[in-house]
Amino acid sequence: MTRLARFAPGLRAYAVIYLLFLYLPVLLIPLFSFSEGTVVAFPISGFTFKWYGQLATQDTLLQSLVNSAIVGAGTAVLSTSLGLFAARAYIRHDFPGRRASEGLVMLPLVTPVIIVASAMLALFLLIGLRPSLLTVILGHTFLTVPFAVSILKSAFEEFDPSLEEAAYDLGESVWGTFRRVTLPIVAPGIVSSLLVTFTVSFDEFVLAFFLSGDQPTLPVYIWSQIRFPAKLPNTLALGSLLLGFSVLLLIAAEFFRRKSRNAIAKVKG
């Protein structure tokens, strides 16, 4: 590596510009959410919190927030449970069809969402499931299983199976081993998976748009507001809150993921 590593000012400058390109558009939303003006244009006029204050009085918004929280929580629990078993199977066991199963479980990552959404709507109505929060949870679980599986796979990857074997040898039951050895080591990975899948579900729009019926989630509510220029300042304020919340959740998820790595390092001594 020594001979190859050189200072590369051109590449570094490009990388910094690229990062600006990634972040600047998104940062405009919180920036203009404090503007007194009702259009998003330079120069920024005034500074106010009033658009945020108005949000608290909008009942449909608050209801959509509750809906999103329910969907996010249901999705996180379901996809993390599915992911937990699957990740353990992929890392610890070799069985016929393992590769096929691993590939299939990752499929939701690379499907055009519009096709998934329209197909699921058709399926659910055909079997008599009316569009509701339940159908959104079922759809979001499908979308988030790949995230849960990959996070939990890395949690199991570094986890030495001999620790469990030692627990059995020392007389622990299967359940006792799971509770006192497996769970503490994998726990940060589980928390990380719960947070990430919750966030993905909380932000997801197209599936929720098709499957939520008359129970809009937060992104569906935002979509209904985006079309009205008069609602723009409120939408900006709401968008900023959503951005802040997502980033907080992801930082927490990253914190737990690192904690899991440290916990493993500690056990290994």
Binding site: P25, D203, I222, G239
Partner: peptide, 11 residues
């Protein structure tokens, strides 16, 4: 990880 809807809205 930030809401896709909001990123498009920003543009």
């Amino acid at each position: 990880w930030i809401s896709y809807l909001l990123r498009v809205f920003a543009w």
